[in-house]
């Protein structure tokens, strides 16, 4: 592993990847030779739009297939595992466009993430009622705590569809934490969130790290990244340009070049939105 930046203690990587490639027709969207996330850190994956960050993220989490490459979680080979199995191994992701399960209540949203619920099997649901009810009671207690931690306890019984955009971000974090991840992957957690909430989210992320969960998050706003990340990996044109501390990466001339002309405020540009084919 060459990715441990100077000035930091070297810890064993919780996630490492080698030679990961993803092509669409003639276009190579992702071509990452080396990538690693040190355990217990907050690592930011940055880069201008179209750099291949989200695609790389999707490949690592089993939501897209890789054309080449290998990656390991805590030293275990997890290359090409389906998304649900990666999640069970402790690698849980969120989505760029927050996706709450609108018809389920907030509490159900969080309960869904509880690992090892025996009532989720058809046999268990029908014949192990007493057993899963007990589990459910414990899980509900934890779910309430998590909702309270994110300030959503008042709405626990309401369908998630009524939440505002920012509240959905919080719910998604609460849900992801319910699954007790060892590595939490956040896809642009700050996108489309008002500045006040950004601070709250950043505090939550720091607290998650403090509890021992490693965090990898995708972000294209460098300012957000600077004061929260331990490590920064910058991607452009599908490749890793630079790896290091926030200060190191931001001084890197290649990184500055990559960001020139694609400023961070381009969310307001309608052509950019349309090009991504997404709603704001």
């Amino acid at each position: 592993m060459t990715s441990s930046p100077s000035g930091h203690e070297t810890t064993r990587p919780i996630l490492s990847a080698q030679g990961v490639q993803r092509r669409f027709g003639g276009l190579t969207a992702v071509d990452v030779d080396e990538f690693a996330v040190r355990g217990g850190t907050i690592t930011a994956l940055i880069g201008p739009n179209g750099a291949g960050k989200s695609t790389f993220f999707n490949v690592l989490t089993g939501f897209d297939r890789a054309d080449a490459g290998a990656w390991q979680l805590e030293g275990r080979e997890v290359t090409g595992l389906p998304a649900y199995r990666l999640a069970r191994q402790g690698m849980v992701r969120t989505f760029q466009l927050t996706r709450s399960l609108a018809d389920l209540t907030l509490e159900e949203n969080v309960l869904l993430a509880a690992p090892g619920q025996r009532g989720e099997g058809i046999g268990g649901a029908l014949f192990g009622r007493r057993s899963w009810r007990r589990q459910e009671a414990d899980n509900t207690e934890r779910a309430r705590e998590l909702l309270a931690r994110f300030g959503l306890e008042q709405m626990a019984g309401q369908p998630a569809g009524v939440l505002s955009g920012g509240q959905r971000k919080l719910l998604e974090m609460a849900r992801a934490l319910m699954s007790e991840p060892r590595l939490l992957l956040l896809d642009e957690p700050m996108a489309g969130v008002n500045p006040r909430l950004v601070e709250t989210l950043l505090d939550h992320i720091r607290q998650v790290r403090a509890e021992g969960t490693t965090i990898l998050f995708v972000e294209h706003d460098m300012d957000v990244v600077a004061d929260i990340s331990d490590d920064v990996v910058c991607m452009a044109f599908g490749r890793v340009l630079a790896t290091g501390t926030p200060a190191e990466v931001m001084r890197d001339p290649e990184v500055i070049d990559a960001y020139l002309g694609s400023d961070e405020a381009d969310d307001d540009d309608p052509a950019h939105l349309a090009g991504k084919g997404r709603q704001p």
């Binding site: 309608p270 052509a271 349309a274 084919g277």
Partner: peptide
Amino acid sequence: DNRALAGC
């Protein structure tokens, strides 16, 4: 190809 882009 892309409804939104065509509209734009």
